[in-house]
């Protein structure tokens, strides 16, 4: 795994991966249901199909966030040192960023789960 994903990806960009996935998941879920209901697509595909598709998309998003969390954990040295990592060294900057990315991944994971919970209970389009 260590060699499979090179350490070069550990830039500031990894920090944004999980929140970006969260944002994308949020937009896709809301837009998909809104378009499905506004355009009256219920005659072509059932709401169950849409629910299933968004469920699969949710699992993909969660997997992506877990991967991002793993990379962050690795960048953090698998928890070998404790925060706050505030020394003015290259090593500490790396650990700090890894730890921040890990926390953001956790937040994004929970947010994606929360955004998906209504999918289980929405019964149909109203109007």
């Amino acid at each position: 795994m260590k060699s499979f994903i090179p350490r070069e990806v550990e830039t500031l960009w990894t920090l944004f991966t999980a929140p970006t996935v969260w944002a994308l998941h949020f937009v896709v879920c809301y837009a998909a249901v809104a378009i499905f209901c506004a355009k009256g697509l219920a005659e072509e595909i059932t709401f169950g199909t849409l629910r299933f598709a968004l469920g699969v998309f949710t699992l993909l998003a969660l997997a992506m966030i877990v991967l991002s969390a793993y990379l962050a954990w690795r960048q953090w040295g698998f928890g070998s040192g404790d925060p706050p990592h505030d020394a003015a060294t290259r090593e500490d900057r790396k650990y700090f960023q890894g730890f921040a990315t890990l926390l953001l991944s956790g937040l994004s994971f929970v947010a994606v789960v929360y955004a998906a919970i209504p999918l289980i209970f929405i019964a149909e389009c109203q109007r």
Partner: peptide, 26 residues
């Protein structure tokens, strides 16, 4: 500070969304 609020909020959200068909039947 993290796990407990997350679980409680998830439970409350689920409960509130589950209650919605009762509060606004269609």
């Amino acid at each position: 500070g993290a796990v407990f609020p997350t679980v409680v909020l998830a439970a409350l959200l689920t409960y509130a969304v589950w209650l919605m068909p009762v509060m606004r039947p269609w």
